[in-house]
């Protein structure tokens, strides 16, 4: 059965509260999921009161301020701080997104931060993405051809052909979409999820790729592709404004086209 309750050792408990320094002018509360596997304790929600007058504008700025000034054990991934690396994907205020591109002022009231849903947690806001990356690898995300490359030039594309892959290849593999998808929650062992399917679509519509048939063969499966029921959480969650739901619908159309 799909598991709807957290196992007893994963149930979230109340955590500590860290008050804002005296004289703080513009205080905002951040409730952050904490889990330390070495402690043997259950996860907890710690509350941090932060003076926004002394803090950068983005969620990631507040988290770095907490790590620098309040609790250095707070653990999360981050790198580029401009929405291109995909490291700081987490569930903020109930939506999967990037901490670096979400402004604090765009959230009303307390800011709740959880790790990406339905993944094993390594520590605090760091989820285990091993399977997610393995699924990406499984779709062979590289150019496959039978025609040898021209000896003295690149494989050419027309402007229109290039534009087809322009948007889907902007995916940064942050996993916001896949971990917002209930089908991925219940069946991620076999369902590829919106991220890997969008990545496959990027190669399916690449005019230079000559493995379209093989790629479609690999996708036609009740679980790999057809677990998508078009609820479009993925498109809603994508911090890069991509449209995985549409890509999946296009894949289903391609399968129909080659049959009918």
């Amino acid at each position: 059965m799909a598991q709807f309750n957290l196992p007893p050792n994963s149930r979230v408990q109340k955590g500590k509260t860290f008050a804002a320094p005296a004289g703080a002018k513009n205080v905002r509360r951040f409730e952050i999921y904490r889990y330390d596997p070495d402690s043997g304790e259950n996860p907890r929600m710690d509350k941090f009161d932060i003076d926004l007058a002394e803090c950068g504008p983005m969620i990631l700025d507040a988290m770095l301020k907490i790590k620098d000034e309040v609790d250095p054990t707070l653990t999360f991934r981050r790198s580029c701080r401009e929405g291109i690396c995909g490291s700081c994907a987490m569930n903020i205020d109930g939506t999967n997104t990037l901490a670096c591109t979400l402004a604090i002022e765009d959230i009303k009231g307390d800011v709740t931060i959880n790790p990406l849903p339905h993944l094993a947690v390594v520590k605090d806001l760091v989820p285990d993405l091993t399977h997610f990356y393995a699924q990406y690898a499984s779709i062979k995300p590289w150019l496959q051809t039978r025609t040898p490359a021209p000896p003295d030039s690149e494989r050419l594309q027309s402007k229109e052909e290039q534009e087809l892959i322009n948007t889907p290849s902007a995916c940064i593999l942050c996993a916001c979409c896949s971990t917002s998808c209930p089908s991925y929650w219940w069946n991620s062992d076999r369902y590829l999820g919106p991220s890997a399917l969008l990545a496959t679509y990027r190669w399916l519509v690449d005019s230079r790729d000559e493995a379209t048939g093989e790629r479609l063969d690999e996708l036609e499966d009740p679980f790999r592709l057809y677990r998508c029921h078009t609820i479009m959480n993925c498109t809603y969650a994508c911090p890069k404004d991509l449209n995985p739901a549409k890509a999946i619908a296009e894949i289903k159309k391609m399968l129909v086209e080659r049959r009918l």
Binding site: L255, V256, R259
Partner: peptide
């Protein structure tokens, strides 16, 4: 891949 699913979908 089970190489099936399209018939069911159709």
């Amino acid at each position: 891949s089970a190489k099936t699913g399209l018939d069911h979908w159709l």
